[in-house]
Design a protein around this nucleic acid. Sequence first.
RNA 1: GCCUCGGUAGCUCAGUUGGUAGAGCAAGGGACUGAAAAUCCCUGUGUCGGUGGUUCAAGUCCACUCUGAGGCA
Length: 324
Amino acid sequence: MNQTRQRQRIVCIVGPTACHKTECSIELAKRVSGEIVSADSVQVYLGMDIGSAKPTKNERQGIEHHLIDCVLIDTPEFSVSMFRDMASESMRSIISRGNVPIVAGGSGLYLNALTHPLGFAVPRNEEARASALAEYGKNPGAAYARLQNVDPQTAERLHINDKKRIVRALEVFDASGEPLSSYGNDFQNVTHKEPPFDALMIGLNMDRKKLYERIGLRVDQMMERGLLEEARRIYDAGYDKNLPAMRSIGYQQLFSFFEGDCSLEEAIEKIKQDTRRFAKRQLTWFRRDEKILWHDVTCWEDGKDALIEKLTIATRQWMKGTDT
RNA sequence: GCCUCGGUAGCUCAGUUGGUAGAGCAAGGGACUGAAAAUCCCUGUGUCGGUGGUUCAAGUCCACUCUGAGGCA
């Protein structure tokens, strides 16, 4: 349990969607002999390519990518902790090859699973979850009251409407007999433990208006590249609508169109709006991480060479361990 | 040219008999420990088109003016 063994150093490129994270990470990898680990909750799914903005074979330029296409769409049990295990394994192999692990992605919780000491509690327990869900559905107030009773600490930080988290907290208690808070459920107070990796955190962000413009353009581009057909293929495969993958932005809205709930134009507008809101939430998430060194990429084309040069130097220094 | 109806939050519109404004959507902020592209919480100050006038008090009444839509010549 002592910390004599130095934690492994990695580089993370984070930020809201459509902020050039992919291109930036590939360019950096080319210069520092890096391999990329995607921290993206949708890119993991095989077959969800266009909508998740996976880099194409060409765009990858021979750089090795991990945690892309690693699970099937109908994998209901895929989760953050599974991501952490798989990503850690990839990281180990990258380091053993003498390369630099570059984590690039926008799924905040996934990133934190690598850079913060999150102590995940009991695994998903189908039975306990189903019963907690039924309990909440029947009477939210009573379910919340029970949580207050068995795990007052968690109850206090959750709003009574926060169904998903209340159900999860009850599930953990019912399955393990221990309150969720005993596993350490306070995000802001986890500094007493060591995170799995020591990360150089690089944040990319741009002017909000410009970001939203880019999101709109990118969605149109996805449609040109065949998002409709891709979504149709997934829809026709008849997966369970409750699968996490089925709720992803870009697919979810097109499914509504296929069901006849809205026009194609409305679905596309909704994709753009939901992506904007998602980007906003991503920013909320990343903003509180004070370790992130932010770079403005509003004028990407003009500034990218200089930025990548800067990041290359920073990465080399970081990996040598000379900058702390 | 005349008549009618409009001009109030980014948008669509409420606004009672005069007491300096409020809904929906959009947007912004926050939270987040095995579903996270998910889920949840909070947030409405705007020269009430402009200028004058009446009044203790005008989004509300009057005059003029700018502007949009429709109608009649």
